[in-house]
Design a protein around this nucleic acid. Structure first.
Length: 592
RNA sequence: GGCCCCGUGGUGUAGUGGUUAACAUGCCUGCCUGUCACGCAGGAGAUCGUCGGUUCAAGUCCGAUCGGGGUCGCCA
């Protein structure tokens, strides 16, 4: 047995200037075309495809071996690069001007027939792809995505390194904390009956690194949240997490803008114009009905509460008098929308709590609307004018509590944009959303909860409201939104013990508990903590947008299904009695 | 936990309650010296997710269940 042929070139790099060279290649068989007396094999490696020719005669041994080769066999071969004969060049292939005449062939491994063909644009059940993820990841588009992901993290590391940031690891086995998402718990063997929690984020540790005088920290770090999955949410996901001492919001924001510029320039060749748009939370909610607005299209929300407050249309008037509001969207040029579609949109708005979806059709034959008869001509005209309605438009309205109006119309806005094809998928629109409320009232728990997290600092001018008007305290918080996705969020943190204690008190945390859960942080604040702030980005979401996928699974090498399981390894799975015993854990499955 | 969609050879699909479940592709065998989605001829390959019900008869109708996807709640 001779030694394995050592690779001298990659498949994808061979071009016309390599003509005459003897090369050694390794790779997988993309496809074999057997003409009896002549065999073509497309050899694939990470870099691309090249056509290898086996012909009988001088290199009979290689030819005979090639007769038995099948898709996905792993080959090493030696051959001579030649320009393809006139008329046989393949313009669809990067290496299509040349081919490799094989002189030696080694079959390094055989392959079972794969459950799906290894190629881009496969239309295969995702479950099958996930079960055979190692085959799915052989597909060039999946490899390109992971290559781009690698590039992005390299850019982030280089960018932050150049600015004096240190990459520092923080623990994965941490302490469970009361606020926030459900924790993944890990039982402790050494401390029977006690549990670690996997980090939802390294929040407290990075703040302690600021106390420790590290000044600038970052980490590309896995985070865990035991909540239900979505297209853009996995139970374990990756953040670019960073924190900086002596920073104001604009320091963090402008630096992150520059990082985004570099990422988009170096991965997509897109120049992002700075500075990025900024919206306050209030403005975002008023105009877009969302704190993560997709600003690639208009369809802005328009308030007509004042017009209809004293109208004869009781549904609208009552809502306004009870402190609610009535807002509308002008779907330009959609007056010909069939009734069936309007019904669908009504159903869609109902998902978000809207009890109805009123509409006014401005058709060529005049105004058509089930609500027009309740409005005087003057009011109707005023409403139409407020929404800049013209013949050919259709106006949609929702009347409810502000939160429901925003939610329903905010989502309807997106749905209309998709249906009316208003979204240019080549466009990337960033927007900072700032001045978030520090707190929001949890109706179920009947208490205030932190909108961002309990370590977020209030805006200085709102500090007096801590005691009097918690609802209207704004936070020194900022989210970066891209095309309607929250890709990052951060804040300036509380760095004084007494403010942090006030915050915990506002959240209804008994002092004993805040001492038990966060005492180490509070104590740290007493030893000279610098003002500090930071931000965390969802790397998976950024990659999803950069690679124009509509789910996060496609940019994660080994993602989990919606039921948080891994269909390849079959995790999670039961464990042995012995393991449970060591952990002092007993299983008690409650019936549904 | 709620709502919506999907489940048929390896893969992707078709399939009026009624014959031997159809088509494409892949696979296997044979032939083929310029293909690149090679071609030609032949062949194998299906517990129609599972369980139950309705019916003379169920891939098809009904119910449950399992799995997958989307979404509301949830996600500081």
């Amino acid at each position: 047995m001779t030694d394995t042929l050592k690779r001298t070139h990659t498949c994808g790099e061979l071009g016309i200037n390599a003509t005459g060279n003897t090369v050694n290649l390794t790779g997988w068989v993309q496809r074999r075309r057997d003409h009896g007396g002549l065999i073509f094999v497309d050899l694939r490696d990470r870099s691309g495809l090249v056509q290898v020719v086996f012909s009988p005669g001088e290199y009979q041994a290689a030819f005979e071996l090639a007769e038995g080769v099948r898709n996905e066999y792993v080959l090493a071969l030696q051959g001579k690069v030649e320009a393809r004969p006139e008329g046989t060049r393949n313009p669809n292939l990067a290496t299509g001007d040349i081919e490799v005449y094989a002189t030696r062939l080694q079959v390094l491994n055989q392959a079972k027939n794969p459950p799906f063909y290894i190629t881009d644009g496969v239309d295969v059940d995702e479950n099958v792809r996930l079960k055979y993820r190692y085959l799915d990841l052989r597909r060039p588009e999946m490899q390109q995505t992971l290559i781009m992901r690698h590039k992005v993290t390299m850019i982030m590391r280089e960018f932050l390194d150049q600015r004096g940031f240190l990459e520092i690891e923080t623990p994965m086995l941490t302490k469970s904390s009361p606020e926030g998402a459900r924790d993944y718990l890990v039982p402790s063997r050494v401390h029977p009956g006690e549990f670690y929690a996997l980090p939802q984020s390294p929040q407290i540790f990075k703040q302690l690194l600021m106390v420790a005088g590290m000044e600038k920290y970052f980490q590309i770090v896995r985070c865990f949240r035991d909540e239900d999955l979505r297209a853009d949410r996995q139970p374990e996901f990756t953040q670019l997490d960073l924190e900086m001492s002596f920073a104001e919001p604009q320091d963090i924001q402008s630096m992150m803008e520059e990082m985004m510029v570099r990422i988009f320039r170096e991965t997509k060749g897109i120049e992002v114009a700075l500075p990025l748009q900024q919206l306050t939370y209030r403005e975002a909610m008023e105009r877009y009905g969302s704190d993560k607005p997709d600003t690639r299209f208009d369809l802005e929300l328009v308030d007509i509460s004042d017009i209809v407050a004293d109208s004869d249309f009781k549904v609208f008037a009552d809502v306004v008098h009870k402190g609610g509001q009535v807002k509308g969207i002008n779907a330009k040029g959609s007056a010909d929308m069939p009734r069936r579609q309007i019904d669908e949109l009504t159903k869609y708005a109902a998902i978000y709590g809207a009890k109805g979806l009123a509409y006014i059709v401005l058709s060529a034959e005049g105004v058509k609307s089930p609500i027009a008869k309740f409005l005087s001509e003057a009011k109707l005209a005023e409403v139409i004018q407020r929404l800049q309605g013209e013949t050919g438009d259709i106006l949609f309205f929702v009347a409810d509590k502000p939160q429901v109006v925003a939610d329903a119309l905010g989502h309807l806005r997106g749905e209309l944009a998709r249906r009316l094809d208003l979204i240019d998928s080549d466009v990337y629109k960033f927007v900072w959303v700032t001045e978030f409320p520090l707190l929001e009232f949890d109706e179920e728990e009947k208490r205030w909860v932190a909108k961002h997290h309990p370590f977020t600092a209030p805006m200085d001018e709102d500090l007096p409201l801590l005691a009097t008007d918690p609802a209207n305290i704004r936070a020194k918080a900022y989210d970066l939104v891209l095309n309607g996705y929250e890709i990052g969020g951060g804040s300036i943190r509380i760095h004084r013990r007494e403010v942090q204690e006030k915050m915990f008190a506002l959240l209804g945390l008994p002092q004993a508990e805040s001492e038990d859960k966060f005492g180490y942080l509070l104590e740290a604040f007493e030893y000279g903590t610098p003002p500090h702030g930071g931000i965390a980005f969802g790397l998976d979401r950024i990659m999803m947008l950069l690679s124009r996928r509509d789910n996060i699974r496609d940019v994660i090498a080994f993602p989990k299904t919606q039921s948080a399981s891994d269909v390849m390894s079959n995790a999670p799975s039961p464990v042995s009695e012995k393991q449970l015993k060591e952990l002092s854990v007993r299983i008690n499955i409650l019936k549904k």
